[in-house]
């Protein structure tokens, strides 16, 4: 069904493009938010990603899976924005999406801690984890989206998960 939709988009069908947008917006927005850690940036990234998809859909090979292609554009856009921001002197107002540290030692907010722990991982481990868990990507999909070989992806997921468990253990012990 998606293939049919993509063929219609290739032929300039704006309605089909809207359907494709509806199908992928939610996870695109969540992945961009998780990767950039900033909802304003994520909005810009998602907008730019769909514009790029529309412009480049002619080059997409319909015999291949759409999701890795789409997320490769999205992750590239995230990286581009992050690089740009790294060159900008940060302002005092920080609009980063982070869960407020209202962690009461007696009321352990597990999801918040888990999310914060994930966000504290290195990008090399964090981004494959975002794609795997948020988006149910297979290791092969992650490899295609991030232009990595599958063994590297496996190793990064393994190390990321191990580190995550260690971090959670520390939080609990504290």
């Amino acid at each position: 069904m998606e293939k049919e939709l993509i063929n219609k988009v290739k032929n300039g069908d704006r309605q089909a493009f809207k359907q494709l947008y509806d199908l992928h917006f939610d996870y695109a927005m969540r992945v961009a938010t998780a990767v950039t850690k900033n909802q304003n940036t994520a909005s810009d990234v998602v907008q730019e990603t769909f514009i790029r998809v529309y412009k480049n859909i002619g080059d997409f090979d319909c015999d291949k899976a759409f999701k890795p292609w789409f997320y490769r554009i999205l992750i590239n856009e995230c990286n581009r924005y992050l690089k740009k921001q790294a060159k900008v002197i940060p302002m005092e107002i920080d609009d980063k999406v982070k869960l407020e540290p209202q962690i009461d030692a007696h009321h352990f907010e597990e999801y918040e801690d888990l999310y914060d722990a994930i966000q504290s991982l290195d990008d090399t481990q964090r981004i494959p984890i975002v794609l795997k868990y948020l988006n149910d990507f297979t290791e092969m999909d992650i490899a295609l989206a991030l232009e990595l070989n599958i063994n590297t992806v496996k190793s990064r997921l393994f190390k990321g998960k191990r580190k995550l468990k260690e971090l959670l253990l520390k939080i609990r012990e504290a």
Partner: peptide, 10 residues
């Protein structure tokens, strides 16, 4: 739990 934390956090 990892998946749920993502859904909540994003």
């Amino acid at each position: 739990k990892v998946k749920d934390s993502f859904i909540e956090g994003t």
